[in-house]
Design a binder for these strands. Structure first.
Length: 328
DNA sequence: CTCCAGGGATGAT
DNA sequence: ATCATCCATGGA
């Protein structure tokens, strides 16, 4: 709409975010950070790729975030919120240095450079991971989207982009509160493709809504006690509890063990050792990966998942045949 | 310890 | 088009 008689340099247009009209964006420093990797590493499931960035919510706020080298362009007024959410204050170089030195960790560390553990809102994280049980990432995204659309609040992000006709103004939805979900029914929740998880999510939402569990107060608990309290909630077992501890309570030692992690650990640290139960594996991870075990786990998880999905069918079948631990 | 329900996307055929 | 595979929790 502004005319500069063709004197507006091309570079300036790019610097303004290639937006038409320009979206009001704030620039914040983000060294040692990879936005796309972080959002695609199985921590959060609601960010939507939009143009060169992503649209999503952080708690009650909606935001657009785009990476430009060592900086982020974010919705105006959301700088601090975004910096805190993406944990830009974590001393990533120190954290990576604290990982054990071995061929697997070295490869994962190289592959995941810039990946950070997000600081998630507690209820949103707990609820999402209750829904994640027995689901793959693509499916968890669907569930998250449906829950938000049915029970959350709409927010608009003005993200009209030049040359990006399909993506004009973007609507996103906040994650519904425990109180809101507590008022719903199992049937309504099942309509969001939750299956048998509906019952667990509803029961846990009611615990929170009635004040029988206080997620904020639980911050004061030790790792052991926090895990125990979380595991008392319906639908929360060791794996989900560790995800919540890591992603919502910043317990950077918490080491969620799912099938991907278990597979990669067994292959690399316990090749053809048939007698290794969950308890022994747990003892190993706590000792071996140390104070930032959760970060190490996230790097291993992302590395394993990406390497597996990149291989074409042939390779995967061969891999699986080689690894197959079935003792028949 | 073992076995198994549960459900929808995804990939193989 | 069908068929197999992926997966965490909780209860038998």
């Amino acid at each position: 709409m502004l005319k500069f008689g063709g004197l507006w340099p091309r570079r300036l247009n790019i610097a303004l975010g290639e937006l038409d009209p320009p979206m009001k964006l704030t620039k914040i420093p983000a060294p040692d950070f990879d936005l796309e990797k972080t959002l695609d590493s199985g921590q959060v499931f609601h960010w939507v790729k939009t143009g060169h960035g992503f649209c999503g919510t952080i708690g009650d706020r909606a935001a657009y975030v785009e990476q430009r080298g060592n900086e982020l362009l974010v919705t105006r007024g959301c700088g601090e919120l975004v910096a805190n959410y993406f944990a830009l204050d974590h001393p990533l170089a120190n954290i990576c240095r604290s990982f054990p030195r071995d061929p697997l960790m070295d490869a994962a560390r190289r592959f995941c450079r810039g990946l950070r553990i997000i600081r998630q809102p507690k209820w949103e994280c707990l609820a999402t991971f209750i829904c994640s049980s027995m689901k793959q990432v693509a499916h968890i995204r669907q569930i998250s989207r449906k829950l938000r659309e049915h029970f959350g609040n709409a927010r608009n992000i003005d993200s009209r982009k030049g040359g990006f006709a399909g993506a004009n103004s973007h609507e996103v939805f906040t994650f519904p509160s425990a109180e809101r979900l507590a008022q719903s029914s199992e049937k309504e929740l099942r309509e969001c493709a939750l299956g048998y998880r509906a019952k667990n999510l509803l029961a846990t939402a009611r615990l929170i809504a009635k004040g029988e569990a206080d997620l904020a107060k639980m911050s004061a608990l030790s790792d052991i006690d926090l895990q125990e309290v979380l595991c008392q909630m319906p639908g929360v077992g060791a794996k989900v509890a560790n995800c919540v501890m890591l992603f919502a309570y910043q317990r950077l030692r918490a080491f969620p063990i799912d099938v991907w992690i278990e597979r990669v650990l067994r292959q690399n640290y316990f090749p053809r050792m048939r007698k290794l139960n969950a308890a022994r594996l747990r003892m190993f991870t706590e000792k071996y990966f140390g104070e930032h075990g959760g970060y190490a786990q996230q790097y291993l998880f992302h590395f394993a998942r990406m390497s597996a999905s990149k291989g074409k069918s042939r390779n995967r079948i061969r891999e699986r045949a080689n690894l197959s631990p079935h003792p028949a």
